[in-house]
């Protein structure tokens, strides 16, 4: 269960770079635009452009490159699967036939497989960059502000966003707990190897205590919030006000115009 320690989902890496200082709303909007652009275009040239852009963002965020790239690791099998499926199942110009299973590799398949994987890598990297450079509090502030128009339709935006923050906050805690429980059960002779049935069965001594402690934590948290007079969103002000600076306007302008251009052409 090595992946337990590899996951850096939603991790924040404090810093004071240009990217860190941008308004979280700018970052969130830009990422949304990037993702839309990535998903609507099939041109290799666009993908190359985005790869360069991603590298530029990484460089200007002053994050260690390895830290950013590590986010891709848990998805490596997904890339293999993507490439595999596309390479062998897309009809088109024949490049090579596998000798044993008469599997056909086509030119179209190869390009499509590559395009889809590069897309996935870029999507993951961009999402990782957002959370790495934006603290959860900033992120949820931004979300709440951006979703606030929905309040008119009686959508409990504040509550939804708060739930999101809490789940982000507890991911590392639960992972740590899982690691601790795993150590404890291994010390009692539990084994997490073997065939599928054995593995599923071996997960019970891990999952059950984990659920119990998660529920207890939730209870404690609710009590703590209650005793600090938490009442929800109405009339609640925040300590830090989000203010757009000139850099934010510039970035947003650039992002939106490029998205427009991409859609038009």
């Amino acid at each position: 269960m090595a992946f337990l320690t590899d996951i850096s989902l939603g991790q924040y890496y404090p810093g004071d770079s240009f990217v860190h200082r941008l308004d979280p709303r700018t970052k969130l909007l830009s990422i949304l635009c990037f993702m839309t652009a990535l998903l609507i275009s099939f041109e290799p040239i666009v993908l190359i452009g985005f790869s360069i852009l991603t590298l530029v963002i990484i460089a200007s965020s002053q994050l260690p490159l390895a830290l950013v790239l590590r986010n891709v690791r848990p998805f490596i099998w997904l890339f293999f699967l993507t490439i595999f499926v596309h390479v062998f199942l897309t009809p088109g110009r024949l490049l090579y036939t596998m000798p044993l299973m008469s599997l056909k590799i086509t030119y179209e398949g190869l390009t499509l497989g590559l395009i889809y994987s590069v897309r996935l890598v870029l999507l993951i990297l961009l999402a990782a960059l957002l959370t790495l450079t934006t603290s959860p509090i900033e992120l949820t502030d931004a979300l709440e502000r951006m979703l606030s128009p929905l309040k008119r339709f009686k959508v409990p935006t504040h509550e939804v966003v708060m739930m999101l923050t809490l789940s982000l906050r507890f991911i590392p805690t639960l992972l740590e707990e899982a690691q601790r429980l795993k150590n404890a059960q291994v010390s009692r002779g539990a084994s997490f190897e073997g065939n599928v049935v054995q593995r599923i069965r071996s997960i019970v001594p891990l999952i059950l205590p984990l659920f119990i402690s998660a529920f207890r934590r939730a209870d404690d948290l609710a009590l703590a919030m209650d005793s600090r007079c938490y009442t929800g969103g109405e009339g609640r002000t925040s300590f830090r006000k989000l203010v757009f600076k000139s850099a934010d306007y510039l970035v947003l302008l650039a992002v939106l115009t490029s998205l427009m251009l991409l859609i038009i052409f």
Partner: peptide
């Protein structure tokens, strides 16, 4: 692990 028994902090959380 049979010869050396480890009892972790707050071991009661591992009951299932």
């Amino acid at each position: 692990r049979k010869k050396i028994g480890l009892v972790f902090q707050f071991p009661e959380t591992q009951l299932f």
